[in-house]
Amino acid sequence: MPVFHTKTIESILEPVAQQVSRLVILHEDAEDGSAMPDLEKPVQAVSRAVMNLIKVGKETINCSDDPILKQDLPSALYRVEGASRLLEEASAMLKQDPYSGPARRKLIEGSRGILQGTSSLLLCFDESEVRKIIRECKKVLDYLAVAEVIESMEDLVQFLKDLSPSLSRVSREVGAREKELTHQVHRDILVRCLDQVKTLAPILICSMKIYIHILSEGGKGAAEAAENRDYLTSRMTGEILEIIRVLQLTTYDEDEWE
């Protein structure tokens, strides 16, 4: 059985995955012995749904500014389209001969293909959504990288104006993503890292204020203040990098399965 790493993908594909598995088992147990019913109508319903997906998918490709999505989505669409064709062929063959073994195999192959193609498509789409969150995380990293050159209150105010909206978006988006994941270990890491970022952010700003204040008072102790600020910056950077790493994980931890 496939493993789905988000609740949305799981809710869409898990029921059909179970049914396809059951069909394969029933088919093997029956050893091609029974007549298949007329599947023209349900196959037509799948074809219509596939045509709609192709249309929507092409629109998504045209409208997207994500080059990786534009590159990956077409092959998932072709896969679903090809599987739909197999189902149509199976239906036509079964009309001629309801006992046809090759038609049954086409039916199973087509059903599996629809499942795999839809899974690939949802995965492409999901990865694109993750890349959007990562872009926001990288903005925060870019802002953190300039913390060490802030030497006046005016610059600090601008730094905060830049950092705060990005940090809020990261917090909101990573928080929502965490709730979407089916893998508890990944969820826990994201929650922990996000909490750390939220805790460290005001402490970093405070350390930057102290550094600026020390500079304006003659600079005694500035090296230690800068060291403290840099330490906090590196801690926050580390947490954001860990968030980026975990956001990209889709595989399951073997230990958890055990």
């Binding site: 059909v16 059951r22 029956a30 019913p37 319903a45």
Partner: peptide, 29 residues
């Protein structure tokens, strides 16, 4: 998202098809 809705429709239609195809096999077993 429209693409999620389209994927849901495919999953539902495929489910219905597979159920119909399974019914005949189940009767035999």
């Amino acid at each position: 998202e429209v693409i999620l809705e389209a994927a849901k429709s495919i999953a539902a239609a495929t489910s219905a098809l597979v159920k119909a195809a399974s019914a005949a096999q189940r009767e035999l077993i």
